[in-house]
Structures are given as structure tokens and as C-alpha cells.
Design a protein around this nucleic acid. Structure first.
Lengths: 198, 198
DNA sequence: TGTACATCAGTGAACGCGCGTTCACTGATGTAC
DNA sequence: TGTACATCAGTGAACGCGCGTTCACTGATGTAC
């Protein structure tokens, strides 16, 4: 049942999008091609009409997850998809983005959240292409954050941004790991406090 | 070929120890019972003479990884297994432990390093028993760290310690993820700087 | 514009493989007398 | 202390299952004339 070029391209995009969520929800190893194609409303057999391997779709899904995070980061705080605590949005955009990242909503929303927090340790063991995508994504985020530190040199801003992003990723990862909601909430709150103060 | 009780107990301990390293090296999903038993010098068939399931050995291996980290943490800095930058050990023991955790040596030594940095995102999807072990381990680390903040209230120390541990885990995870050694080094250096300053 | 044919997105069965788990078997260890 | 028997740590083959990947097939789409 051949589809038109546009339909095929749309299908491909749909696979990448749903795969991106599935990977974040169940992990790279925990998501099979069957799950992945099923989530896109297809059967697994057609997978190789769109991709050369599982690693390729992992790579593209990661890239898309990063891209959508970068886009959300660039938006004005009030347009962010997740709830922003009242009174915070008044500060600079970075503060709002940090509050968004470290919100309980983001913590609860693995499938739509930061790919680094969802897949961190699995990414350290991924193939060269995936790790390259991950690295370029981190540097993209770093540039976005660093642009909000106008009072220090670009080099210092970059360093500070690396600290901001890595500590935020750690906070959300650990907050998701512990099974005590009070501890999770405290971790996120403390991270917000320390990154706002700096 | 029945073994004596002592030999069997030693074998069991050896399985848990080597499994703990294998899990950190290749991930929970990436380590099969075959790899795990092979690393202990055995064949896979005997696994169920010691454990009820893979989850049980994951749980015990995680607990042991945490325990050995807690023990190393409690030791005097000079006795730590990893190199400590000269001049740092003079400060309080926490500073040395932080410098150790955020050292390039720890970053390079996944199999013997912190289980949270090695397995973070996989632990968020683990079974109830494993997540419970992970949670208790984090709280144990937090108590150890908080004991080094004598000038603030216990509650404030605990909160500060949660920030310290979660941001360190994030730093090492991201440092291992990126494929640019200079970026990795900067992440670790920045984390050291910010956690020493606080 | 119509016709004939090649292309190819998607289906569903099948491939070999490694997974977690089970089991019959071996033979040294532990135990009962 | 010696003997007979039960126990069980460890081996290696086997189980069913789901994995990533391949393939024959279908039939609508795209293309050449």
C-alpha cells in the first residue's frame, strides 16, 4: 500500500516524534522497534523503509528531543508548556527557564521532558553518533544559558552555564530516582534556590 | 560438585562484587546473567543457586556499590583510592571527598565509581526494591555530607547536602556523556569550584 | 490525457540470536547412626 | 571413627520469548511514453 511522498515524510516525522517520547519514558534499551512503531500506529515491519538501524532512530529522536527543549527554552516564560511559579517570570528569562526545568511538573513528565535527565546514563554508553548528537545538544543549551550572563566574559559565562546545566540534569535525575516525594521536592527546591542565588 | 558452605558464601560475595562492576560498566539492561556469572568465573547455570532473580542481584550489587562508596567517603582523604589534587586534602574532609568525586580519575573509572552516576537514568525505571535501595543510599550519602556542615541547622545541612550530591551526580554523568575531553574537564572543574565556594 | 510499468510504504511472517529461567546431572560436602 | 545417605554448588543443555533485522507480498503512487 504505497503512500504519497508527503504522507511518507509525515509518517517518518511521526515515528521520530513518538519514538522520542517512548525512549524517554522507557529508556533506549527498554524500547523495542515493536513498541516504537506501535506508538506511531504502525507495524514493525515497515521500520526499515525509513531508517537504517535502531541507532539511527535513537539519534534522530534524541536530536528532536533536544531541539524541542531548545525551542521551549527560547520562548518567553509565559508561553512555556509547564507551569511557572507566580512571581518568578518577572526576573530574567533564564530564571524562568531554570524554574521550569526544576519544576515538579517537569520531574513528573519524563516522556516530554529533557532527554538528558531521562536518558543520562544510557547516553554515556551510546554509539559514537548518538554521543556526538548529545554533545552538540549540551553545547547548544550552554550557549542559550550563557547568553543570559552578560556581565561576565563569554568564557566565564560558558563555564557557568556548564555548571548550571549539569547540576540541573543531576537534580531532576535524582529527584526521579528517589521514591520519597518529599525528598524529590526538596532536591528540586534546593537546586532552584542555589541556581537562582548564583 | 558441591562446595563447602564457606566457599559457597565466598562465591556469592564474589558474584555480587563483580556484578556490581559489570552493571556500572555496561548498564543494568546491558549486563546479562551470562556476562555477570562469567565475570565471576562461573557458568550461568548456577546463578539461581544464589539468587531468586536478576532483580535481586541488581539490588544487592547496587547496595554494595553504595556501601563501598560510603566507606571510601568516611576514610581520611589520604587513604582514598583515587588521586587527590595536592593542597586540597588540607581542608575539611568533605572538600577532599568532593574533589575525589569530581576528579577526572573518578570520571574515567565507571566500573569502580559512584553507582548513581553510572546508572542514574536506569535506576529511575528500576523495580520497587531497587529504587528503595537507591533512595536509602542517597539519604546515607546525604547524612555523611551533612555532618560536615556544623554551622547550620541539621535541616539546612540536609538540604544543602541534597544539592551537593545531586549536582555532583549530574556533573559526572554529563562529563561522561560528552565526547569532548576539554568539555568534560571543564564540567568537573566548574562543579568543584562551585561546591567548594558554597 | 491515457496507458503501461516501475517504485515503494506498509504488512505480517520469518530469521538467528541472546535473554532470563529451568532442569537433569555430577560429585564433593554435610549429616545421621 | 567409619559408613551410608541426603544435600546442594556448579555445569551445560534446553525452555519460551522478544529482540533487531530481513523478506515476499500488496496495491496505491509516481513516471515514461
Amino acid at each position: 500500500v504505497r503512500k504519497s511522498k508527503q504522507e511518507a515524510a509525515e509518517t517518518r516525522r511521526r515515528i521520530v516524534t513518538s519514538a522520542s517520547s517512548e525512549f524517554r519514558r522507557n529508556g533506549l534499551a527498554g524500547t523495542g522497534l515493536n513498541d516504537l512503531m506501535g506508538a506511531a500506529g504502525l507495524t514493525h515491519g515497515g521500520f526499515y523503509k525509513h531508517f537504517e538501524s535502531k541507532e539511527q532512530v535513537v539519534d534522530e529522536a534524541l536530536a528532536q528531543g533536544i531541539e524541542s527543549m531548545v525551542e521551549a527554552w527560547g520562548k518567553t516564560p509565559s508561553k512555556s508548556s509547564r507551569g511557572i511559579p507566580k512571581g518568578v517570570a518577572r526576573g530574567n528569562p533564564l530564571e524562568a527557564a531554570i524554574a521550569d526545568y526544576l519544576s515538579p511538573e517537569h520531574c513528573a513528565d519524563v516522556a516530554d521532558g529533557c532527554p538528558y535527565a531521562a536518558l543520562g546514563s544510557e547516553l554515556t554508553r551510546a554509539g559514537a553518533a548518538v554521543r556526538d548528537t548529545a554533545t552538540r545538544g549540551i553545547l547548544k543549551m550552554v550557549d542559550l544559558i550563557a547568553a543570559n550572563y552578560p556581565d561576565i566574559t563569554p568564557g566565564a559565562a560558558r563555564k557557568k552555564a556548564l555548571w548550571t546545566i549539569s547540576s540541573m540534569i543531576g537534580a531532576v535525575t535524582v529527584a526521579r530516582m528517589v521514591n520519597d516525594p518529599a525528598v524529590s521536592a526538596t532536591i528540586l527546591r534546593e537546586a532552584r534556590k542555589h541556581l537562582a542565588d548564583q
